[in-house]
Design a protein around this nucleic acid. Sequence first.
RNA 1: GUGAACGUAGCUCAGCUGGUGGUAGCACCGGGUUGUGGCCUCGGAGGUCGUGGGUUCAAGUCCCAUCGUUCACCCCA
Length: 421
Amino acid sequence: MLKIKAINGVKDILPAEIMYWQKIEKTACDIFRRFGIHEIRLPILEKTELFTRSIGETTDIVEKEMYTFVDKKITMRPEITASLLRAYVEHSLHLQQPVQRLFSIGPVFRHERPQKGRQRQFHQIDVEIIGAHEPQVDAELMAMGQMLFNALSLDVRLEINSLGCPACRPGFRNKLIAYLQACSDSLCDDCKRRTAKNPLRALDCKKQGCKAAVEHAPSILDNLCSACEEHFSAVQQQLDLFEVSYNVNRFMVRGLDYYNRTTFEFLTADLGAQAAVAAGGRYDGLVEQLGGPKKTPGIGFALGMERLFLLMQQQKKQQDQPKGQGGADIFLAALGEQAIRFASPLVHQLRHLGLQAVMDYSNRSLKAQMKQAGRCHADFTLIIGEQEIEQGRGILRNMNTQEQTEFSFNRGAAALAEVIT
RNA sequence: GUGAACGUAGCUCAGCUGGUGGUAGCACCGGGUUGUGGCCUCGGAGGUCGUGGGUUCAAGUCCCAUCGUUCACCCCA
């Protein structure tokens, strides 16, 4: 029989690495709690229209990367923000509390060619603060992100930019297009295409020629309207108050249409071509665009869990290694059919008492069972053979000290539990 | 969608200008210890060399195709 393998671009998370994922989730939840951010769980399937309306009809994600059941007009979410806002609007959460601070964790799907730090099914931690326009909130979100990376002992850098708003961006966009057209000869083919479709993209092209060409391009930061200008400088002041270090990167842009004003990315040089570990920004028009209350501001970011995981491997520091769930409290080594019959209710009682108790029913040699006990990292092994049953007491071996004592079975499981804890 | 590299045991890999698949390491199973794990030691099991063609007396090795994986581009977390 041909083995059935997982499809291209998806990965199993194996028991050997699950501790990293649990640590990431636990750390994130703990930090979110400190910021008063609450969990929301969302469906993976949404109406296709949710994403075409929010992310943008002509973005790459919508144009070619979504997994869609065309006949049903249903899509497997390519990001979480849209779903979260859909739920916010659908349940009128703004009526319960004007500012909603929410997070959600789960898989997202994009049909891209996989590479390092990029999968077709991957996992995001998504945080959104809806209903607050104050620049302090922008900074707080970034400070929280930094706190999370610090808690995981990860070294990343923060870059920020402002994309302006509907009042000032179109003007800048026109200036930029004019500039790009003027120096079109020194741009790569991709950037020539971008000039028409998404000129801002040309600003963060990786090619040397384009980098040089846009070096003197008009800067969005010189073209912000006064409100945006004020907002952006207030964000920076607040970051300073939170003692979060950052760099302003006027070349940073966004691939999703809904962003305005503040954008930010947490970046690393340790993941090959995938520099962004977390990215986000403000989306003040989006809630309204999804049918929510008018002029509801919002800001959020998404964090790529696979990238976080890879980074934890990459930047491994011995003292920060997450611990597994720990070994067994006790292994019951039963020798012979009679002993197995005797031991099985005992192991069950120990589990009722809350212990991790392990045995197997294969009736293998004591040596083999001891070996297995070692593999389970059992603290104790209780050896039960024909002799022991006859005499009414088993041999209790402390696996760490190698000391052995006898344990009378008639004392019961509770007494045994007490002896070994 | 585009480009490149790579597919040998569960994992990591040797295998030279074509000449019998490796006492290889880790892991697994068993013995050394009549019933005691880790260390040691001896043994065992495990492979259609991704698949299909071709060249050749002879292909893991060379050629073609195909599938898969990886990395990069595009784009993005």
